[in-house]
Design a protein around this nucleic acid. Structure first.
Lengths: 133, 133
DNA sequence: TTAATTCCTATCTGGATAGTAGGAATATAT
DNA sequence: ATATATTCCTACTATCCAGATAGGAATTAA
């Protein structure tokens, strides 16, 4: 229940890896080896993180990835949402009537509250916090 | 991300349904129709809820299901755990070293904290709260 | 003995997740 | 120029599991 996708776990590990090397850029292969992540799979993850503005990259020889911001300025919520999108326990959190129960959906507020709780937890911790353990 | 299984949503709806009829017992088919849940699928869900002591049942003619406790004494955490087991964002929440990173797993405490946060939210709300919307 | 019900076991299926493959585009160094 | 190292893009495959269905056995009341 509420399990975190491998993708997101990989993303977090990759980010912590980059966070420890702020001065230079790391290649995807380097990160993959250091963090024990399937190399080709990681490439796609790094693309998403880049598209979300969390990391930067340079192509070609001597290319690689590096942090786009300070680790203390990146919340865990940003990383999670970059990879798996907004947290949505049930389909009707966004719009009333988005489930088969329509307006009679009693649990809706309960789920919305859960989402808020999770979001708050994730938004309160930064990559720096997590990298330190 | 963090989406709730249909099973759990069905279970909650079934429980709210029973909670509104504390005096008599309801059949699985009744609940299925009232809550728009696949009838046969619901049977398995009710079995789990019973195994967990949240509801009681009688077989045979005039049989059915009813609440085993007062709705205000059933937490949402109980329902969720009855259906999908303990909340476990990552495999290593229970035992250090249960992931490939072993003792060097930096995000572990972060995930444990998330689990605690979710558990607390669910444990603080009762079926009565949710049934009222 | 019939009808209504829970309970048990087995099976099917679609879609998502995880991972692989191949190569195009780009940059550097020599 | 050319070789090399890298990101980036697209497509494919495999595996797993949630969701659902099917058929009937066990049990109980009328």
């Amino acid at each position: 229940m509420f399990s975190v996708s491998a993708r997101t776990q990989y993303a977090i590990r990759a980010m912590t890896c980059l966070a420890t090397k702020p001065d230079r850029s790391s290649t995807s292969a380097e990160i993959a080896q250091a963090e024990n992540i399937p190399a080709k799979y990681l490439e796609g993850i790094l693309s998403r993180l880049k598209a979300f503005g969390l990391i930067e990259s340079e192509r070609g020889k001597n290319g690689g990835y590096r942090m786009a911001k300070n680790p203390s300025d990146i919340t865990m919520l940003e990383i999670v949402e970059a990879i798996d999108g907004r947290i949505k326990p049930v389909t009707c959190v966004d719009a009333i009537g988005a489930c088969a129960q329509g307006a009679a959906c009693h649990p809706r507020n309960f789920w919305i509250g859960l989402k808020s709780t999770i979001d708050a937890y994730l938004a309160e911790r930064t990559l720096k916090d997590v990298a330190q353990g």
